[in-house]
Simulated scan of single mutants.
Amino acid sequence: MSARLDATASGVYAIAATPFRPDGALDWDSLDRLTDFYLACGATGLTILGIMGEAPKLEPEESLEVARRVIARAGAVPVVVGVSAPGFSAMRRLARGVMDLGAAGVMIAPTPQLRTDDSIAGYFAGAVEAVGEDVPWVLQDYPLTLTVQMTPGLIRRIVEAHPSCVMLKHEDWPGLEKISALRRFQSEGSMRALSILTGNGALFLDFEMERGADGAMTGYAFPDMLADVVKLSGAGRRDEAHDLFDAHLPLIRYEQQQGVGLAVRKYVLMKRGAIASDAQRKPGSALTPAARAEVDYLLARLARHDPRAAF
């Protein structure tokens, strides 16, 4: 069991895929292997049952079993569990269940229909009341998918209202100025300390680190590269961090395509030996032969600069 999540969290929290067999059944052996893979790649934490983890496709009992298995296998490495749900009762059930299993915290995203600052703040107040003020949680800011716009001022309002909010998963795009604004709030004393980990498939990680991010929370299929970039940036080795990041950028960009991103990610994870199948539970997308050939080409080019891509 890991310690509870707090505002000092940093490094790479890998957004974990959920492995399925071709028939749609959960692949428990691959789940164990994938957990080991993330840890071997240098992940400082794991985030499971997120959007890219196909969480809405799981039955409630399956979600708890996935959490139980990953938390037990991760040991001291903190596991954050996505508990976003249309209703607070389902959110509470999953949140309390995974915390009892030893999760470090939960992640909560706003529901897509929210539009005003007051409605967004009110939603998170209700969510905190539902899961319990004792549960550390991550505020997911992902307007490109969730269509909910949160300004730096609104994020500060939510953070200050709820001490149990200890991390922001920052996925705004463009979002570099938002990171700078939040860090400015902290430096001037108008907002308490907050861990900021970034998503968007790591598309902007190189400069996000320079703007004050504490690391990445995303599912790019080379979490070992993400860990290296975070460490190099933290050590002030700017050119080395950018050189490594730039070598991966064509594959990162390809993976960011709407609708096929998870298929690309699972295909690469399968090629890396982390999962047995790149299957998604229905409804889901699959790569065409042409797309697989393109990913293979990108991997071959990447292998010239990073041997981890040579399969």
Rank of each mutant, 00 (worst) to 15 (best):
G273N: 08
D228M: 05
A72K: 14
A76I: 10
Q149M: 12
D118C: 00
A274V: 04
I120M: 09
D172G: 13
F222E: 00
W137K: 00
T35F: 07
A216P: 05
H305D: 13
G75R: 13
R301K: 15
I120W: 09
L31Q: 12
T35R: 05
R184F: 13
M225N: 11
M217G: 03
D6R: 02
G102C: 06
A90S: 13
A130M: 11
V81T: 05
R237H: 12
H170F: 04
V159K: 08
Y254V: 02
H305G: 11
D100P: 01
I252S: 00
I71K: 10
C165Y: 03
G53P: 11
Y220W: 10
G201I: 00
I71G: 07
L176A: 14
D118H: 07
G153M: 01
A227G: 12
P86F: 03
Y220S: 06
C165E: 00
L31C: 08
R301I: 04
M217F: 08
L46W: 05
G102S: 05
L249M: 13
I51S: 15
V138M: 08
M107W: 01
K57M: 14
L39Q: 01
H170W: 05
M225T: 13
S187A: 15
P307F: 09
A85H: 15
A125H: 14
A227S: 14
A274Q: 05
A290P: 01
D214P: 03
L226Q: 12
I48L: 05
G201Q: 04
M1H: 01
R115V: 13
A303Q: 12
V80M: 10
P250I: 08
Y297F: 10
K178P: 00
V166S: 05
P250Y: 08
V135N: 03
P56Q: 13
M191W: 11
Y254Q: 11
D100H: 10
S285P: 00
P223W: 07
L194V: 04
T44E: 15
T111F: 08
R184E: 14
R93S: 14
R301L: 14
R301A: 13
A25Q: 15
Y123L: 09
A247F: 10
A310E: 14
D246H: 07
G126D: 11
T8C: 07
R265N: 09
D118R: 12
F222M: 00
K266C: 01
E171W: 00
A17Q: 10
S89V: 13
H305K: 14
T147R: 14
Y220A: 08
